[in-house]
């Protein structure tokens, strides 16, 4: 439907290329997030989860499988660059938030909009990370919970808004 992407590629190739693109985007976003100064009030290692934007989009537009794949690769990438703990944090956050968003999308009549999905994704992302931190360190990290919820709501809203802006652009590339 769009001239710019009307290349003579098989749907399979296009799907692979597109998923690769999304993965790259997720990695770039988590890299950007790394450059942000560490936020006070957040447990060590916890991130805002900007790359949720990508997994969220992938969940809705491509499907659960590729979305989980992106989360997995993102986790491995974190493991390679920042160590085992970071990998566990990233994997737990990424996989759980993807699953939660996928489930919410499948609910009949989809009660939530993009913002709601983003918030739900961010919250489950933070919850999973906190749980991992709880297991790895001390129960004291649970005191971060209220702050994580606040940051989760905020970053969820940002995710939803960004996706709203990016959706038309990304849709140009989707396989129809």
């Amino acid at each position: 439907m769009n001239h710019t992407t009307n290349l003579n590629l098989s749907p399979r190739t296009r799907s692979i290329a597109f998923n690769g693109l999304l993965t790259a985007l997720a990695l770039v976003l988590s890299a950007i997030e790394l450059t942000l100064p560490p936020l006070p009030l957040l447990p060590p290692g916890a991130k805002l989860g900007l790359s949720n934007i990508v997994t969220m989009y992938a969940t809705g537009a491509v499907g659960l499988g590729p979305a989980l794949c992106i989360a997995l690769i993102k986790g491995l990438f974190a493991g390679v660059t920042r160590g085992f703990t970071a990998m566990l944090m990233s994997l737990s956050g990424g996989l759980l938030s993807t699953l939660v968003m996928w489930l919410l999308l499948r609910v009949n009549g989809s009660p939530f909009g993009l913002i709601g999905l983003g918030v739900a994704g961010a919250l489950s992302h933070n919850a999973a990370q906190l749980f991992v931190a709880f297991l790895l360190t001390t129960p004291a990290v649970l005191y971060y919970l209220p702050w994580l919820i606040l940051f989760g709501v905020l970053s969820g809203i940002v995710t939803g808004l960004v996706l709203r802006v990016m959706m038309p652009l990304l849709n140009k590339f989707t396989i129809d």
């Binding site: 939530f112 909009g113 709601g116 209220p146 919820i149 606040l150 709501v153 939803g160 808004l161």
Partner: peptide, 21 residues
């Protein structure tokens, strides 16, 4: 649709939860 009523409820609920915690 970007924002539904239930989204607001969701946000409000979690903000309240954070405050209570």
């Amino acid at each position: 649709m970007i924002l539904k009523k239930k989204d607001l409820f969701l946000i409000a609920f979690f903000l309240c939860l954070a405050a209570v915690l």
